[in-house]
Amino acid sequence: METMVEIQKLRKQFGPLLAVNDISFQVKKGEVLGFLGPNGAGKSTTMKMITGFLAPTAGTVIVGGDDIVKKPLAVKRRLGYLPEGAPAYPDMTVWEFLGFIADIRGLTGTARNQRIDEVIQRVNLNAVLHQPIDTLSKGFKRRVGLAQAILHDPEVLILDEPTDGLDPNQKHEVRSLIRDMAQEKVIILSTHILEEVHAVCSRAIIIANGSVVADGTPSELEAQSETYNAVTLTLAEPQSAATDIRKGLAAIQGVAKLIPITENEQQLCYQLVPQNKQAIVTEVSQYVRTQNWSVAEMQVDHGQLDAVFRHLTAAA
């Protein structure tokens, strides 16, 4: 797959504040890249530089072969952008606003009207078509912003917090919309909702204090979790057996650490953390079977993205 977006050593300085510090990455067609990071990490600033709203202090942004600084119009034509908070012209109706965007994007004639209709269907704006935008709810405003961004069927879509402030149903709609479009486009979206990364992103970049601290698929990032592949075991055994059980479990090959979670009359619950994040579930289940303990529950930890997130961003 071809590389559509290429960011190299991108840097932005606001006076004494270094907002973005030498960020580099590439995005290929078909990828949905999630930008993660605490508030103020530099996500929006990076997006503003990619879309040409802010001029970088140093570094280059190349979209589809063209540099944003040297050929801004060529790049902007390829981009669809939903700025943070989905700004629009509040006194216009949805219909007028989309017409304005279509005109300025150079769509004409039947293609223009067809495209507007298509987008209206796609983001479900029929009900509010002739209402002024400032009378709309937050969810509808966000959808108008999305409609505006995808109107010209751009190759690259930049979405700054596309689901912020939406209710769970609306979030679901927006995510499925993003998934639908993912194949033929490059989508870069920022979010601080971690579940979203799993729901839509094929790749995630974590930014903290203006630098990239992690870059990989959501599962790769989760694998960095300290409790990755840990086994949580709940046994329906009497409390009196606890000491023996603990000893036995800790001795299983590959187990680095045993963390007792609950020990009471009804059940004993332990978390077994492996050495080097290796898979130990087979060994544990075999051992439990040989001991003839009755198992109430057994779970393998696939890693917690929010644990990784906190670990990577709080340290900096």
Partner: peptide, 14 residues
Amino acid sequence: KSGSIELLLTLPIT
């Protein structure tokens, strides 16, 4: 104030 400047100036116009 409304932030629409960000929309306007990221459209393909100078």
